[in-house]
Amino acid sequence: MTGVVKRVGYAVGLPAVLFAAWWVSTANSDNFYVPPLRTILETFGQLWTLEKLQADVWPSLWRLAVGYAIACLVGVALGVLVGSSRTVRATLEPVLEFFRAVPPPVLVPVIMLFAGIDHTMKIVVIAVGSLWPVLLNTVEGVRAVDEVLSDTCRSYGLTGVARLRHLVLRAASPQIVAGMRQALSIAIILMVISEMTAASNGLGYTIVEAQRSFAIPEMWSGILLLGLLGFLLSMVFRFVENRALAWYHGLRRAQRGS
């Protein structure tokens, strides 16, 4: 019981302190750009009604989900392909490294040119930008499949789809998940950026609009919401990861112990 209390204490402690510090230091602020936290929270309650969440947060999250899912699927599929063949890898790797080095936000105007300014553009931007960590990590994971396990599979006739499913994807899963974690934060950034350039709804749009019309508390409340969303998504991610990779964490602990 005390263990749980301790863990909750560690988790909540610093945020509570920071929050309190923000509250106190801005309590009497008359700086137009730094309104009191109380004002921001009041605005937060007024602005982010259920209706507003539906109108502006839902589209953002929906585009994020689709773009991120595409990035993960394509990244893993391509990664398996590239990782499994030396020839393909040797041919593609320099090109892939180049594309990864291009900062995704600069793709926004380019993708706008051929995908327009609607949902498709934003989804493409999210997918293209967050694809690389998944792809490159999958390649690494697939390459590192243990030789003895691989021989074991062959000798028991586990080839083709069975090998892919039971050996390659599972063995690479720790790296794949690491790639997906990086990809998630990139996807959130791109979700916001894609909405700042050309959009009529979305979280990023709301924040930029508020900023442009000097609705400063509204802007701050949007940033706050964005932070909370990112936090929530990473918690969900960690929960799923702990389930899916329980074997890996156990294995690592066992190896460290011995």
Binding site: V148, D151, L167, A171, S173, W247
Partner: peptide
């Protein structure tokens, strides 16, 4: 195989 640690599926 000799390397039992690497011939069983840890997952």
């Amino acid at each position: 195989f000799q390397e039992y640690g690497r011939s069983l599926f840890p997952w």
